[in-house]
Design a protein around this nucleic acid. Sequence first.
RNA 1: UGCCCGAUAGUGUAAUGGAAGCACAUGUGACUUUGACUCACAGGGUCCAGGUUCGAACCCUGGUCGGGCAACCA
Length: 550
Amino acid sequence: MTEETKTNFIHDIIEADLASGKRTEIITRFPPEPNGYLHIGHAKAICLDFGTADKYNGKCHLRFDDTNPAAEDEEYVQSIQNDINWLGFDWGENRYWASNYFEQMHDYAVELIKKGKAYVCQLPQEEFKDYRGIPTEPGKEPPGRENSIEENRTLFEQMKNGEFEDGACVLRARIDMASPNLHLRDPALYRIKRATHHNTGDQWCIYPMYDFAHCIEDSIEGVTHSMCTLEFEVHRPLYDWILDELDIFHPQQIEFSRLNLTYTVMSKRKLLELVNEGLVKGWDDPRMPTLGGMRRRGFTAAAIRTFCGILGATKVESISEIELFESLVRDDLNETSLRAMAVLDPIKVILENYPADLVEEFELPNHPKKEEMGKRTVPFSRELFIERNDYIDVPPNNKFKGFFVGREVRLRGAYLATCTAVEKDSEGHVIAISCTYDPESKGGSAPDGRKVKGTIHWVSAQHAIDAKIRNYDRLFTVENPLADKEADFKDLINPKALQVTTAKLESSLAGAKPGDRYQFERVGYFCADLDHTANSPTFNRTLPLRAPKK
RNA sequence: UGCCCGAUAGUGUAAUGGAAGCACAUGUGACUUUGACUCACAGGGUCCAGGUUCGAACCCUGGUCGGGCAACCA
């Protein structure tokens, strides 16, 4: 990574550990459960996990936390790996599976039983709730808590051997039913769940719970700093308890706040609702904050990385403004994308004094400030398309750049032209305008040096490519769709988040391939969609250019 | 009303007992063959009250406000 990783409180901890000699190398991990698609919230974690390892010349493991076969699927493994790679990170040899440690986890569980620190609880789930109690009052000791060690070993063995029905019992840590931290009131360590695991098949019918599994996974892999989101803060005493009781390598869990973004939602459950109810067209719909959706939208991995780097890591719960992200996307795209001309809402221009059968070709730079990005050839002829809003009957102020009758305007890279007349239909809509061009102004400057107010883009009518344009905008109409807990966030979806139109493109765009990014000058940043073909050109608007300040 | 965590411009963050900075956003202006980009300038902040200290955003105490925790999910 070339992006500078800004320092944050986690790095302070790491630097102290390095300085004190507590750690000599840094190992982090990104531990997704393969049960869904990654979104930009995960990108924050990925950038932190991989970026931190990178910053301290350490390693970051990709570890699939596949401890719940009921929810997980191989399909997600591929998509997660793909997204991480796209973001620009590489786990190298360090890809692990929680399920590869099942044997060892089982042995550790037996060890806890032998120490009298775990027992098999045969209370139904619902009944245990009563024993756990409520936050303000201590719980009470469930039956079975005083089982003998031998009894527990036998029971756990029977659990493992499939001698109990699903849910008949769990293995619990024996900690403190009166703890003010609910997670220490004898939490479940293992449950019975007959489901075919994508990796271990039907080898196991008991699976470790997150709290038991995660710290052991970290420990086995020698993870030094295990970063996770804030909601796991209250789990940390349990994380520490298990490692201490087992007396094994003890990573440090450090919590940071989740990423929230204005005008979108981030929870997996809510995104699923949008998909299931057909409010978006799938997980990779370009309106979605999923990495797949953002990639398809045309957002760049570099912008996402920079964004996450700027946000850093804190323990403050926050909602970041999408404007910052958009600004970084524009920064990146402005540097890297090829320029082209496209007219999104066309009206025709007829150059009355231009020969009907003449076609000229102009060489236009692919980037106004980067000669090394080359040039392209753009055909010019008597009939052109320009943007509907580049003509107006009466200009509202002297800032208007386009045509009105009598106004001379520069046709970008071609000629100066003066509007002479307008043609409208019976309802008063402009159909076409007539202009005369100045043959002396080839390239766009007049020999007499006269200035024009505006420069507008155009496309030669006879050479134009018709394309479908998907204009994307923010998914919701309000900054925080979840702010009103009474309301359904789905009612706040922005109906204009996708508007499909047709446009006239300059002919050089015929060579575009899916994923290619362009700046359509004076309009915005666009990329050829996944389903783009030469026969059915389809472009997504990533972002409009920064809006003019009236 | 149990336990845990947090609070710095509108937003996100820096300053780790010694001049409160940066970015985005906002406003004004310059430049411009993209109303983009670029450039210049401007406004605006330490939750409150005490305490310690020569000196507090930072340490202490007490409030206030916000968030999390009672899956055999992660």
